[in-house]
């Protein structure tokens, strides 16, 4: 079975977000077209201000796009739904509830007619899954940053959503904790074949976790530049990831984009005909697409 399903599970069509300011409309991003299948792990990479969080909020239903449509399984998003669970960057636990109560709050929202025992049993399964066994009675204030985010992950998974939305879930954690949690998320999502849409700043995190990496140009008026297909095999492992021959081509491609191309992308657009409805699919390491692209004047000057 291919890790990438052909059935479009999520479809963004011409999505834009504009804010009304004193001088007129301020466009965060526009003309976003993107689709991905069930079971795919999609990461969005881009600089601050390109509207990554806004895209995630639109997918969750918390915000509405100014233009365009978002479909999940062919149906337009009407608002927040229990089918899409959000893992917030700030974990967003309710501080007056214990770990167990925080997860139970979500479980009871999903299945209001479950009895106490069933809710408890279900919560315990997810507490054990994220290795928080023994911390059920603790309040968020008593937990470390990593443990809080584990609760956030358990809460999101406990409602058994069709899709998981993660807004830089590990960015507030220290490097060691981040690595451990990334591996756990990779393992859990691999086992359950969870569809995930995640936002990150971290290139290595994207390579480790994502099947598809969506590159966004700098805001305002940000757009999707490319979709990078992760050519590393899906049973990735943090320890020997960097030994794979495709690792450095992908990593270099992503870093080149973030450092140079993301801010000069509109110049690149002048050289080639880029259809925003079909952002180019790039497979670094397999087909060297970069050679086909005429170098931008700014870059050409530097390289020669």
């Amino acid at each position: 079975m291919s890790p990438v399903s052909d059935q479009p599970f999520v479809k963004l069509e011409g999505v834009a977000k504009r804010f009304q300011t004193g001088g007129g409309a301020n466009t965060v991003f526009e003309d976003l077209w993107l689709s991905f299948g069930q079971g795919e792990f999609v990461c969005v990479v881009g600089h601050s201000g390109c509207g990554k969080t806004t895209i995630l909020n639109i997918l969750s239903g918390l915000e509405r796009p100014s233009e365009g449509y978002v479909f999940i399984q062919g149906r337009e998003i009407a608002g927040p739904s229990l089918d899409r669970a959000v893992i917030f960057q700030s974990h967003a636990l309710l501080p007056w509830l214990t770990v167990l109560q925080n997860i139970a709050f979500a479980v009871k929202s999903r299945w209001p007619d479950w009895d106490k025992g069933r809710v408890r049993e279900h919560c315990q399964r997810y507490i054990d899954l994220v290795n928080l066994t023994g911390a059920e009675k603790k309040r968020p204030a008593e937990l470390s940053g990593g443990m809080k985010q584990r609760v956030g992950i358990a809460r999101a998974l406990s409602i058994e959503p069709m899709m998981l939305l993660m807004d830089e879930p590990f960015s507030a954690l220290d490097a060691l904790t981040r690595g451990v949690l990334q591996e756990e998320v990779l393992k859990i999502c691999g086992e359950t074949r969870q569809t995930v849409f995640m936002i990150t700043h971290d290139v290595d995190e994207a390579i480790l976790l994502a099947d598809k990496i969506v590159l966004m140009t700098n805001g305002p008026e940000a757009r999707i530049a490319e979709v990078v297909l992760n050519t590393l095999p899906r049973n990735r492992d943090r320890h020997d990831l960097h030994r794979h021959p495709h690792y450095y081509p992908i990593r270099n491609h992503l870093l080149d984009f973030l450092i140079d191309r993301s801010k000069n992308f509109h110049q690149e657009l002048g050289f080639k005909n880029c259809d925003p409805k079909n952002p180019p699919l790039v497979m670094p390491g397999i087909s060297e697409v970069r050679a086909e692209r005429p170098p931008s004047p700014a870059l050409a000057g530097l390289r020669t």
Partner: peptide, 27 residues
């Protein structure tokens, strides 16, 4: 806002939101 967003993404009804999220937060 993030607590309210949690309630929204969990499709919590208005009464439950008032008593289980807003009241304890404002208490």
């Amino acid at each position: 806002k993030e607590w309210l967003n949690v309630a929204r993404t969990l499709e919590v009804g208005p009464l439950r939101k008032a008593f289980r999220v807003i009241l304890p937060a404002a208490a």
